[in-house]
Design a protein around this nucleic acid. Structure first.
Lengths: 197, 197
DNA sequence: TTTAATTAAAATGTATACATTTATTAACCA
DNA sequence: TGGTTAATAAATGTATACATTTTAATTAAA
């Protein structure tokens, strides 16, 4: 199975796997040589990476704890909104999808747990049915991935149980409870990861 | 007073003032000729205009009413969040800024009313003190401008009075009232403008 | 006629040379 | 030696040629 990654995917993977130093300068010329393309496509890629908070002002972006808290404030705002919508819109089939992702997260090895947890949050976001809000959320995917990896690898307590509780609130159609739970859940992810990162 | 606009500002102004047809194709070559630059800077500008919902897939973006409702859902989510923060954080000086903008909006000619109304909403957003949420809001500035122009030119009833009521809710520190009022305010702007646009 | 295939044209993708700006180093002087 | 300026180098900005892809037009076949 040959991986045929786009230039963007290659650079993104290299950043997420830590192949660049924190705050390393991302000059077009250097990257063009490294990936054996011209500056033109590198520029496009850098724009995309800036969009998703991996690069800033020509450097690898190392957000401060304050930056991460602000990003999570935006994330929480959107996911909290999503819970409201999910309680209005989700039927048994959708709720079953959420439950299945919880089962998979319990059972699987780390990378499957990671994928299952991502599915859980993405499924919630899908309830919004708003491409602009979805894009704003997806823009944080790389950052969210880094946090998710940390909480799974470091085995944050109650991680998956909290997902189950959130599904419970959706089943009960308890908006206030759902909003509170998702807020607490994300806040724990944030503070737990900040401690280790 | 010579205006010295950047290429981006020129193209943006031309779009906002309707110099391009709805759904007009924005080819790099055509724009390069029109603005007498090469394709390279045009590409940068098109990226930026796509970012702020003025261009999509190489065409002038004409959002559907559904698109506008979705954009306003995102806007409302952020401004509602801002009201909560404003009620926590705003002191007499901030509240006075809001009141002044209301006075200016009443007194001035159309373009000053427009500027004062923009100031009102931007001041609210500033209460969030979150650069990521601010950027997401600012990304909608062009769209917000088009709506604001419509409601001012077409003299939507109660427009400025609603601003005053919102300030009232902030002074009373009534979160629920504030959130309800900003939601209703934005919804009226949306539906009023959709009727005319 | 419609539909499909072929060809032509137009647009975008990429590489690269040159211009301009920004950052770094070196030289100079108080 | 510290601080300013000049010289150099490095990076980004811009224009442009060529490659590739996409779109449109034309022609051929059903």
């Amino acid at each position: 199975m040959e991986k045929n990654l786009t230039l963007y995917e290659k650079v993104r993977e290299d950043i997420l796997s830590g192949k660049f130093g924190e705050n390393e300068k991302m000059t077009e010329i250097k990257l063009a040589k490294k990936y054996e393309v011209s500056r033109t496509p590198i520029r496009e890629v850098l724009k995309q990476l800036e969009f998703e908070y991996l690069v800033k002002d020509g450097y690898i972006y190392k957000p401060s704890p304050e930056d991460y808290r602000n990003l999570f404030e935006m994330r929480t705002l959107i996911e909290t909104h999503a819970i409201e919508k999910a309680i209005l819109l989700f039927g048994p089939s959708d709720i079953n999808d959420l439950k299945n992702s919880i089962e998979k997260a319990y059972a699987g090895p780390e990378d499957e747990t990671l994928a299952a947890n991502k599915y859980f949050h993405d499924k919630l976001i899908s309830s919004i049915r708003n491409p602009f809000l979805s894009e704003t959320y997806e823009r944080m995917n790389s950052i969210i991935y880094l946090f998710s990896r940390t909480v799974v690898e470091r085995q944050r307590p109650n991680l998956i149980e909290e997902h189950a509780q959130i599904v419970g609130a959706i089943e009960e159609r308890d908006v206030e409870k759902g909003k509170r739970l998702i807020g607490e859940h994300l806040d724990k992810d944030l503070e737990f990861s900040l401690y280790y990162m």
